[in-house]
Simulated assay, not measured.
Amino acid sequence: MISRRNVIKSIGLGSGLLFSSNLIQASPKVTESEFRYCLNTSTIMGQKPGLKGYLEIAAKAGYDGVELWIRDLQEYIEAGNSVNSLRMLIRDHGLTFENAIGFAPWMVDDASKRKAGFEQMEREMGLLADLDCHRVAAPAFGVDAPLDLFQAGERYKNLLDLGRKIGVMPQLEFWGAFPHFYHLGQVLMVAAVADDKDARILPDVYHLFRGGSGYEGLKMLSGNLIEVFHMNDFVMHIPREEQQDKDRVYPGDGGAPMQQIIGDLKAMGGRKVLSLELFNPDYWQQDALTVAKTGLEKMKSLVTNVVGT
Rank of each mutant, 00 (worst) to 15 (best):
R135M: 14
M299N: 01
F118H: 09
Q74E: 15
G217F: 03
E173K: 02
V228R: 00
F97D: 05
G214V: 01
R271L: 12
F103V: 08
H134V: 11
M107F: 10
K246D: 11
S222H: 10
Q260C: 05
D161P: 05
Y215E: 06
P146M: 08
D196W: 02
D282C: 09
F174D: 00
E297V: 02
L73Q: 03
E98A: 14
P146T: 07
I24S: 15
S301V: 04
P146F: 09
R4K: 14
S85I: 12
T304L: 09
D196K: 01
M220A: 15
K219P: 02
L162Y: 03
I238L: 13
Y54R: 06
L276I: 00
F141R: 08
V235M: 12
V273Y: 07
M258N: 05
E122L: 06
C133V: 11
N40S: 13
L18N: 15
V249F: 04
S3K: 12
N84F: 07
D72A: 10
Y206C: 04
G263A: 05
Q243F: 04
G212S: 09
K298D: 01
F150Q: 11
M268H: 02
R5V: 14
G252K: 04
L128T: 01
A140Q: 06
K113R: 15
G163C: 03
G50F: 05
D132G: 08
L86H: 08
V108K: 07
G255P: 04
V187L: 02
G308C: 08
G80L: 05
G102W: 03
N40H: 10
S42Q: 10
R114W: 07
L68E: 01
S112R: 09
D253K: 04
P170R: 02
L184C: 03
E241V: 07
P105A: 07
A137T: 12
R210N: 14
I201Q: 00
A199T: 02
Q260F: 09
V235A: 14
P179V: 06
G254I: 04
A137V: 12
G270M: 04
I44S: 02
S85Y: 08
R71Y: 13
Q74F: 12
K48C: 14
P257W: 02
S3T: 15
G94N: 08
D253H: 08
V303Q: 01
L218M: 10
E75M: 12
L68C: 06
E78K: 14
G153L: 01
R155F: 06
K197P: 06
E122V: 08
L218N: 06
A116N: 10
G117Q: 04
T43L: 03
R200F: 00
A199N: 01
E124T: 15
P146K: 08
F229R: 06
G14L: 13
K293Q: 13
G163K: 03
L13S: 14
Y182P: 00
L73D: 05
E67T: 04
Y54Q: 09
L188E: 00
P28V: 14
L128N: 02
F234P: 01
G252L: 01
D245P: 03
D195R: 05
Y63V: 03
R87H: 11
A61S: 05
Y215F: 15
R4F: 11
L68V: 04
N224L: 07
L23W: 06
F35H: 04
V193H: 05
Y76R: 12
E78R: 14
L17S: 13
F178S: 09
D198T: 07
I262L: 07
D282N: 13
R91W: 11
